[in-house]
Amino acid sequence: MSDKKKKKLTPTQQEYQAFAKAREPARPVWKNCIRAFWVGGFICLIGQGISEFYTTFFDFNERTAGNPTVATLIFISVLLTGFGVYDHLAQFAGAGSAVPVTGFANSIASAAIEHRSEGYVLGVGGNMFKLAGSVIVFGVFAAFVVALVKTIVIMLGGA
């Protein structure tokens, strides 16, 4: 907690928060990290396998196999979300299943499923990007800033 926030609390509140904190189970950070590492790595391994599959059996090279590989992973993730498996995997894996593209697909699919009862337009359409929306907004903005920096550097005769 930031100092600014702490100052607003009364001494009783501060005392209680320290009291409660001492009795809360700590987040198992190391265990979560190790699990995330292995599950995240395993998802990437599956991705690599799919990529190899496309380059071996279809007319793709290492560069062009990227798109169908991502599409396949997204498809698998959405399927697992629909069957109600992905959230259980995520409780175990944490960031390991949230960071890869499958996690992004899960955030969109789960919101779409959740709001199906409010109809296609206001429900599915309006809520699908409820969680993924901020990733897209800040992703696009970050890309814009990076591109801007690169353009300026080139204009100044950098490279």
Partner: peptide
């Protein structure tokens, strides 16, 4: 859960509390 937290099928890890 839909109202207060995330979609039920969303893969977010919950803390032990």
């Amino acid at each position: 859960e839909k109202q207060f937290r995330y979609p039920t099928e969303y893969g977010g890890q919950k803390p032990p509390t």
